[in-house]
Amino acid sequence: MSKIVLEVEGLRTSFFTRKGIVKAVDGVSFFVREKETLGIVGESGCGKTVTGMSIMRLLPEPGGKIVGGRITLNGTSLLELSKREMRNIRGCMVSMILQDPMTSLNPVYTIGDQIAESVRMHQNLADEKMITNEVVSSLRLLQIPSPETLLKNYPFQLSGGMRQRVVGAIAMCCKPSLLIADEPTTALDATIQAQYIALFKDIQAKTDVAIIFITHDFGVIADMCHRVAVMYAGKIVESASTSEIFKKPQHPYTRALINSVPRLDRKDDRLYSIEGQPPSLMHLPPGCRFCERCSDSLEICSKEEPPEKNIGNNHTVSCWRVQ
């Protein structure tokens, strides 16, 4: 077994607003190994992005706060670091790719300058030439054609797929041990998305980087991830290896989510749909958070929160139905 790069234990992140406390992430634990991709899947508002932002310690201030838990990256406890120490780690040991490349790139700087910024910040390279070399090699890693000429281009001159590769190059230029990718393929077209996923598999094989892939798309999960954590209303309700999740989903929410995705390889007459909507994170129900929308809930479900059970093979579920 390769070593564990990131371990998150009981992470709780809340937003303190005038109307009340929003528990966006409420006791989430997981780990990622070297060379492994963990998928975090769930609907919008389930806390998957906030989990990523908590690891980066990039929560909006004031308001967003990590109120409990531990995050350990390569043996360093991230929550105990000062802001300055965290700046040295961010972009170097752990980096992040966001959904829309047009908003994460600066429109008035060239591609080369934007990648060089990260190299200058984290690697003590005296010579401009060495910096350029680093930048070019990270563009090569992302398989960008003719990187030397692309350096002088501005983001608007590139296509969506190329831009997202540049964002990938910024993230990978300091050879991080953990990469958090937050819906990196959602803004891309289907065939470009397939290219991007194949590219990241290739990069992972070359650099051993651990990846956390945040998405709502099960197709991406099936292609890319080794293990999956399914989130609902701030909690991980089920986690297992990708093939277990697809073949033996245990939690009713996981099952419903998989069933409600239309399939290409068969004709459905009617899609399974989950009625209702996720609960408000400000007023969470006392029992299981999925209880209201669950088709086979028990009496206990609305009263007590189900504990997390390990049913073997590192497959964990939080549901009263699972014995």
Binding site: A190, T191, Q193, A194, Q195, F218, A222, D223, V261, L264
Partner: peptide, 24 residues
């Protein structure tokens, strides 16, 4: 190529000769 890109399939479930088509 479009069908291959949007197919919900685990890599282990693909046949040997049914490789994912990735357009360049």
């Amino acid at each position: 190529a479009l069908i291959s890109a949007s197919d919900l399939k685990l890599p282990e479930d693909r046949d040997q000769n049914e490789k994912e088509i990735i357009l360049s």
